[in-house]
Nucleic acid binder design. Structure first.
Lengths: 233, 233, 233, 233
DNA sequence: CATGAATGAGATTTCATTCAT
DNA sequence: AATGAATGAAATCTCATTCAT
């Protein structure tokens, strides 16, 4: 194996007595991330990760196989295990990535929104656009609930936290009705999730690039009313 | 053999290369249900189905095995195939059952509600109670999205249809604001789904028998406002 | 799976409520022996065990493969796991068998020996004959020290115990000099082991069916003197 | 490359089907030792060898991996093959080293012993001390019987030769009874081996630093008697 | 001299499904 | 109707070894 277990001094040390002693005791850490050291390695890892996203998305965690992933990545099967300990590990890492991307996209979209309602409007639009563009990833998150529950909870929690903060500020500003922010956050996520499921994920083919206007409008009205208009203080 | 299989060849294929190539998930003629003819058979079938519910719920579709199911059912492995063609088939059947039960429970709960808001209140309460009592089944439906998509869509569609009808009537009666009924139905399902996930499914142990009051209240207020009060026409 | 986990009531019970309840809780016992129920199963298990003895003996534990074992046994690979949980398990079972056979052979040989010295003479002869006839098994025991230490210790301990008892009786009778019986037992086993290694196991081909007379004589004289003649009480 | 390999082609074979078919234990031209030329190289080789001793001792030949060895040695995996052709080669070399050390320790211990009995006493003490200090190495030799039989036989033969010579001289001097020297040598080795196994190798923890007095005494008395006192010719 | 990356054969184990009794 | 046995494909993961830099 030629991959560092996390960022730490590894090879620059000439093999002195001290480093030796350390080497002796440093038992294999099964959980240490497998970080490539060279650019070539980094590129290979990336290729594998990308291939995994495709494969997991198309086939699902269990039907996917490492050999399919490495085939698409164009590397030998053994190469996979240079960069990831297990099939589950790469899956969980993907879910993390995904959440990261989604949050970045949403954050970018809502920047500069004049009020909470507009935040919701833009946020939902960004979310639906993202799902339409990454339909497989949607299924991945769904599946992660069984396969890598920590990853799934991390995904939802991170989204929720961002949501809650915005909601609390809006409540404090009197823009929306006061309420348990986490409850509202999860309610909103649920709405987004199910609308996307019904109108973006289930439909096959190209007709599913966006929600029907009528649906989007009804949903946004529902949300707007639900959040409670300005309280008029 | 005392099991009907509505006149169709089933296993006549000798194990040729092609049939083998179909692999473990060979979809065969699953249109011919295997219906037990005697009471004893009926009971065995039931036992297998019950065991399957446990096993699938605990372990998930892929980690579950027929042998674990039959072990828990107290029958031999071969017996399984007297009543079900494939692993997938029994899974899909379970999802159907599940939806049935849930809808029955909900319908019973909302009967006699004086207005739409009360319907929602009671409906949600019933839903949460059902989830708390059938936590495994919740995961099953979730998983069915990948494993047996038709079953999953059937599940959600049936719930949605009931929902929509109620909503349309309420809209017609001016009880709630007019909107695309299916959109609202899926939004409400999403809310229920995610609140249950966050407060009933994720938490470990006994503290998860019901939603915290505050959460439930906030959610119901959100929904009530969202649906729109009486339009006063 | 169609094999009982040890001798216990399994199938004769009609599936009543009680047996069901039991079935539910009886989680898979990973350590329960896999005992065949029918004669056919028993025969298959035997074939696998015999093949394993050959294969392990010839190639050693690690170079041996399950697929080679099942090939020689004339069964499919999966069949192996109906009767044994792991490669290690069958190996350990073999070592147990072996010890059993060896002790039986030795016991038979020494029955009726007039005195302790004659016991040793006959015992060693029986041991060498056994090793010559089961040269592979010798290597197996040797290897078991690493692969299945409990099995190895069990093997030696059982032999030693028999030895010790005989020695103690002989000491009590004044036939041999008093000493720590276990020490003498292990010393005698060591002698047998190394003589067999040098003159029966290492030599290739047919010339190694027995120890050279001179060697055997020298060894027996050494042992005879070592045990100490009658103490003349 | 600064490592001599006495003029012979080594790796020129492109990885064709045939070379691959040789599998992982391909015996190649192991007759060309890989001798380091610089002091740095010498030190690296030494580090690898020391690490290998630990690893092989702890895990055994087959469970040990080159990557574990190089990890402990603090070098890259590729570096291993600068100094050793194969895994087997380094293993065999270790066994050789070991025998060397053991013989040196024993020789030092018996120097100046007044008679054969005293030689045995001191020799056994030295042997047991060595085993207690190198418990892993004991297992290594044991395993070498399968993995590198030549090395194992070399090990025992060298010890035996030293033994035999001493025995023959003692016989000639009338110090001990005449006998086949090799038989007696292997018998004595067997005794030492099995006593060490039982009282030094098997016991876990610190209580196993030496044989119990009673055991040692009984064994030495057995040996003393066995060798036969002065024949008084 | 040394390194890190890459390879790919191979091994164990699981499991849905079939079948004779 | 039920059982126990058998099958064999497939999947994950390990590891000795090679090679370009």
């Amino acid at each position: 194996m030629t991959v560092k277990k996390s960022a730490s001094q590894t090879a620059e040390q000439p093999a002195t007595a001290e480093t030796l002693a350390q080497g002796r005791d440093a038992h294999r850490d099964e959980t240490a991330p497998l970080v490539p050291v060279t650019a070539r390695g980094e590129a290979t890892r990336r290729r594998i990760l990308d291939a995994a996203e495709d494969v997991f998305g198309e086939m699902g965690y269990y039907e996917a196989s490492i050999s399919e992933i490495t085939r698409r990545a164009g590397v030998a099967q053994g190469t996979f295990y240079i960069y990831f300990h297990t099939k589950r590990e790469i899956f969980a890492e993907m879910v993390g990535d995904l959440g990261h991307q989604l949050r970045a996209a949403t954050r970018a979209a809502i920047t500069g929104a004049p009020n909470r309602i507009e935040v919701e409007r833009r946020g939902f639009a960004a979310f639906f656009a993202f799902v339409a563009a990454h339909r497989q990833l949607y299924r991945i998150v769904q599946e992660s609930e069984r396969v890598a529950p920590e990853a799934a909870q991390g995904y939802y929690d991170a989204i929720s936290r961002g949501y809650e903060q915005g909601l609390r500020e809006a409540m404090a500003a009197g823009e929306i009705a006061p309420a348990n922010a986490e409850a509202i956050a999860y309610a909103l996520m649920g709405i987004g999730h199910f609308l996307a499921l019904r109108w973006l994920v289930w439909p096959q083919g190209a007709q599913a690039d966006a929600l029907p206007d009528e649906v989007l409008t009804s949903a946004l009205e529902f949300i707007t009313r639900g959040l409670g208009g300005p309280t008029g203080e």
